[in-house]
Simulated assay, not measured.
Amino acid sequence: MGWPHHLMNPEALSGLFDSIDDLDVLNVFEITLNREGPVVALRADLPRFPERPSKRWPPGANRVQILIEFLGVEGLSLSGFETMNEGRLEVLPLQTGYAFSFHAQSLELRGACVGLRIARVSAYLEA
């Protein structure tokens, strides 16, 4: 079961996609750390465009981007970062909360959190 199935708000994606499976490979653009929570946020492109895109998105948009927040983060480790950070996001349930990891050739992110949610979904045209 992929990470979208562990979201606090899976409808943020299930309303756009016929299936929220096979969304594990992300291209991470930005990692934000916020001490309030603490929260770790990833801004990343999803691997495919949704079957039911929002009517509010720009005409011709062909890439969808999410902001996923990991809430109540503990034991965070981060190593590396490059201009291309395409890798696999994994979320595993723990007795209380979740373990999360993102592994790319140039980036390794690991930690534990009490929950995760989609904070934003947007789309753009990649030429």
Rank of each mutant, 00 (worst) to 15 (best):
I20L: 03
Y98I: 07
L46R: 02
L89T: 07
A112I: 11
A112Q: 12
G111T: 07
L42H: 14
R63E: 06
R117Y: 03
R43E: 15
F102M: 12
S79M: 08
L89H: 08
Q95A: 08
A61W: 02
G75S: 12
E86K: 10
E82N: 14
L67C: 05
E30T: 09
G115S: 08
Q105H: 06
G97Q: 12
G15T: 09
A127W: 09
R48Q: 15
L23A: 01
L76A: 05
S77F: 08
L13M: 10
G111Q: 02
A112W: 01
I66S: 00
N62G: 04
P58G: 03
G80F: 12
S101P: 03
E36I: 08
L92N: 10
G115I: 05
N9G: 13
S122A: 12
R43D: 14
T96A: 09
R48M: 15
A104T: 09
W3T: 02
H5I: 00
Q65V: 09
F29K: 05
Y98H: 12
I68M: 03
F29V: 03
P4G: 14
E36L: 11
A119W: 05
S79P: 10
Y124Q: 00
I31Y: 02
L107G: 02
V121E: 01
G37N: 10
F17N: 03
E86S: 12
P53C: 03
R110M: 08
L67M: 07
L7V: 14
R35K: 09
M8K: 15
A99S: 13
E90P: 01
A127P: 15
P50N: 05
A123V: 01
E126I: 00
A123L: 02
T83G: 01
Q95N: 07
D22L: 06
A44V: 14
Y98N: 05
R48P: 13
L7A: 15
A119L: 04
D24A: 13
